[in-house]
Structure formats: structure tokens, C-alpha cells
Amino acid sequence: MRYLNNSEKKRIVRYRKHLFYLGLLLLALLEIFIPRDPYFWFDGLPVFYSVFGLLGCILTIIICKTLGRYWLMKSEDYYEE
């Protein structure tokens, strides 16, 4: 990878990206079609875990960052005063 030029690098990255999306799609499909034995009504829903992963990640980031910005994050010498 070190010896490739820029356009080749980009191409490889794009290729990998597509592979990744394909993998995600496959997983979502698997989650729909394999037999499941849910504990609750909700975790047996199709693609529950896929959606939970994506939304959970995004929401966590957004909520925490907001909390941090307006309340919890202080400058590094906060306690030194």
C-alpha cells in the first residue's frame, strides 16, 4: 500500500467500502432469516440488533457530546484554581 499512488489508493479504499456495505447488508439479511429465540417481544424484531447498533451509536455520541459541552466538560486546569 505504501508504494501505490494516490488514485490507486482511493480506488482500493472505495473498493473496501463497498465490500463493507455489502457485509452489513448480508448481516441484516441474516438477522431476518435465521431462526431466533427472543427473550422479549422487541429483540425478536427483524434487524433489531442492526438498527440498535447504528442508532445506539449515533445517539450515544450526540447525547454525550451535548451533555459534555453544556455541563460536564471543563478546561484542564479547572481544579487548580
Binding site: 452489513l24 448481516l27 440488533y49 442492526s50 447498533g53 451509536c57 455520541i61
Partner: peptide, 12 residues
Amino acid sequence: EKIALLSFTFLG
């Protein structure tokens, strides 16, 4: 389930 959960987290 686990791989799906984590892969989509990776996407996020």
C-alpha cells in the same frame, strides 16, 4: 446478533 450489532456500530 452480536456481529450485526457491532458492525452497525462501526458504521455509526
